[in-house]
């Protein structure tokens, strides 16, 4: 690492504070668009933490995949489903939040105890530093070749699955009439179980 140790410590403190405060904002802010942008900030500061850990390739991958793809995808999803709805009040919501907060605090205490009481085998072997990308490439094409190829299959499956799930209009031919039919509308009519409150749409005939 070429930068001084004090600089590293300052960077670590700033990036950790950004990460934790940003994640709290993601969870707690009422406006979900602000949450999505804060999530991008959290991803960026995690990438900075990776840089402090001598992992420039994974930091670049983090920025490209998380900030560039996942965050944009989440923003698109928010804008696609952005209907202003007033959430119905639930009895005991505050109690539920406090209880789950206590459980999470207990989990945090447990993790801290594990982190601070375990005798880590420090100092380990010296980090490779700038050669990390070369080592990752060697790993990916020698002993991690099978997971690497499986990851490509997984990405293909995810792409096809996302297209099939999110596609709106599936035009098929009706069995009875032989005419093209809108599969989504048919499914929606046949399964009224999925719709809680069906408000009859005002048609042209019912209008005065």
């Amino acid at each position: 690492m070429s930068i001084a140790s004090t600089t590293q410590q300052i960077c670590f403190v700033v990036l950790s504070a950004t990460t934790v405060v940003g994640s709290l904002g993601v969870v707690l802010l009422p406006n979900i668009v602000y949450s999505a942008f804060l999530l991008g900030g959290v991803f960026l500061s995690v990438a900075g933490l990776y840089l402090l850990l001598n992992a420039s390739f994974v930091a670049a991958a983090q920025i490209l995949v998380y900030v560039g793809a996942v965050n944009v995808l989440i923003l698109f999803a928010i804008m696609l489903v952005n209907k202003q709805e007033t959430l119905a009040a639930i009895p005991g919501l505050l109690l539920r939040r406090l209880l789950s907060g206590a459980v999470c605090a207990g989990l945090f205490a447990l993790l801290l105890r594990v982190a601070f009481t375990t005798a880590w085998a420090l100092p380990g072997p010296p980090p490779v530093g700038e050669e990390a990308t070369i080592r990752i490439g060697e790993h990916l094409f020698t002993d991690y070749l099978l997971p690497f190829e499986l990851a490509s299959v997984l990405l293909l499956m995810a792409m096809i699955g996302a297209i099939v799930l999110a596609r709106r209009d599936v035009f098929t031919t009706d069995v009875i009439t032989g005419e093209p039919a809108d599969q989504g509308l048919i499914e929606k009519e046949r399964t009224p179980l999925l719709i809680e409150t069906t408000t009859p749409e005002p048609t042209l005939l019912s209008k005065p």
């Binding site: 992992a55 994974v58 995949v65 793809a69 990916l140 991690y144 996302a162």
Partner: peptide, 21 residues
């Protein structure tokens, strides 16, 4: 680091399928 790359891959796939669902 190799594991982290695989986790990032799976997370991207999970985000795509989850948002489609």
């Amino acid at each position: 680091q190799v594991f982290a790359i695989f986790v990032i891959t799976v997370a991207a796939a999970e985000a795509a399928v989850g948002l489609a669902i």
